[in-house]
Write a protein that binds this DNA or RNA. Sequence first.
DNA 1: ACGCGTCTTGCAAACGCTTGCCCGCAACCA
DNA 2: TGGTTGCGGGCAAGCGTTTGCAAGACGCGT
Lengths: 340, 340
Amino acid sequence: MKERMNLEQVARRAKVSTATVSRVLNNASVVKASTRARVEKAIEELRYHPNLHARNLAGGKSRTIGVIASNMENPFFFDIYKTVESGAHARGYEVVVANTDYRSEQLVTSIRLMIGRRVAGLAAIVSEMDPALIKELTESRIPVVFYDVGTPRPNITNIRVNYRRGIEKVIDYLHSLGHRRLGFIGHHAMLAPINERMKAVLDAVARNPVLEVRSAADADTLEGGRQATRALLATGYEPTALICVNDVTAVGALRELRERGIRVPQDVSVTGFDNVKLSEFCYPALTTVHIPRERIGQIICDCLIPPLDPPSTPEHEIVIDPELVVRESTGSAPASVRKR
Amino acid sequence: MKERMNLEQVARRAKVSTATVSRVLNNASVVKASTRARVEKAIEELRYHPNLHARNLAGGKSRTIGVIASNMENPFFFDIYKTVESGAHARGYEVVVANTDYRSEQLVTSIRLMIGRRVAGLAAIVSEMDPALIKELTESRIPVVFYDVGTPRPNITNIRVNYRRGIEKVIDYLHSLGHRRLGFIGHHAMLAPINERMKAVLDAVARNPVLEVRSAADADTLEGGRQATRALLATGYEPTALICVNDVTAVGALRELRERGIRVPQDVSVTGFDNVKLSEFCYPALTTVHIPRERIGQIICDCLIPPLDPPSTPEHEIVIDPELVVRESTGSAPASVRKR
DNA sequence: ACGCGTCTTGCAAACGCTTGCCCGCAACCA
DNA sequence: TGGTTGCGGGCAAGCGTTTGCAAGACGCGT
């Protein structure tokens, strides 16, 4: 029982060749029922478990798709992952994940890992992305889907959300409620002025001279949102509305405001982004922008897992238009500043 | 560029043997600096990425540990996973995860998958567990850590939290606040009377004739907690305190109560379990029971990853005593029922 | 009884990498 | 100058599967 278990052991016990055992395992080809039964019995008795590495090596293919995300802790990423996983399982694929924690060093490691595993497809749901890496991926010839970064290439599909549009909807809405002094709560990876969300905010404000904005950023967590809010308020700035880069940080902001006795939405309005489940369950429920994560997950599956029938040529760039969801965390700007 | 890239290609280009390339890759053995440089150059130029399956097959060992959890969406599991991951990375191991969604069918699949991958160690953070599976694992000879289920065996370590103690603390506390009519909000996997938490509640109530409890269960999600609460209240039962099986469901409960205009804690007290970060950030902040997830993660690493120095014999059963954390969601029972 | 197609099954060559073993060579000692 | 070392590196035997090819078994028509 201590010796290594492998096809040969099973074969010997079932008095067949390893080829036959293999065929039984993959229930491919026609194996006589009696033989199959004998083999299955042997497998059972020996508690044999096929070595997947050997399988992949010999078979050449892998039926595994990789998902790399910046922060699985944030339900936004997790929801996408979950959809991808169930889509993959439904088609008989496995999925293996990796977190980057927004560290591009981790991204590199993860991508290498995925290539090393010879995944059948790779989804990179990350906001950081180095052009060199993109090249490395292009050359690896494996189908890739990027979310948010990257440009379409032969084997690369691109999904992007029109953040600009989303942010504009938020700002228009807040503006219509009389808000003029805005705050933007980001997280580190969003701080870079290259970032579309950040830029969208800045641009919108620039376009409307009546608006004013200041921002702060911290980690992409509840605590981070709270800290960023604290930092922003510590400067003495008194925004009447806080635009948060996502729902998680918004919940963090909510907490900080509550602690300071600032009422939401009476004193300050708060908006999130993503429309994660939590945004309905926090108090007050968040006004946010919906990003269809299930749809994104499905698109990923469709791009990465080859359909059996027609070699369809999926479009290589997909853009999604997000929608505003109004809930309880926003309201008219306080009267004192209303008179503009 | 389209042909398969492998050690041999690299070897040819660097004018060495595959053995040498392999040695460079594993920077093992002594390779002359000039040779190493040549090989590295070739690797770079060819964009070579070693095939991990082949590596594992040939090497026999895997430097990968597997983590199986019931519901990664619940931060409780995620926090453990995260600790395990960083511990593993620090020791040069990879970690690969799997979700079971509380479905024992998925558990079986996942375990088989992990065995197939020949993981160096496996952590099963699941509440469902079939004895047959435990046997299968024992026989697979791979080191395993169970959380919450299973019994210690030669290659199996067991971590368990003294839920009974935790629940007792909660009930004692609520009792001291004057609560008598309790509600228990569980989730499906916790509903089984076999479950320790559930039993602990029942036992505690049975021990104190003044207490009364009814329960309901739904999914282990925000929405599930809300639904279970709704179901419980729909029966006409009017508890003054709701004991939730974990923080996530508690936040769901909070939402349902708020919607019904029931104030927390003035009208009804609510408790969570786990002390997940969210419990501090929801409103009102949850009174809960702390389970040291980082510690659990570390124990898992220590048990699964062999230390370099002494072949220490780690204890095979570890029990953790949880602590009550009082926050805002609990208070005295309303006066009307106080007079008992 | 013989020849021929159909099923089943076995043989053995990959798959890409690791590693024990051995050998050539240059430095070193006497 | 011949014998010892020891380093650097090549050879080739696995690691556990899959799979194309071919052979054996069997049934059937003639």
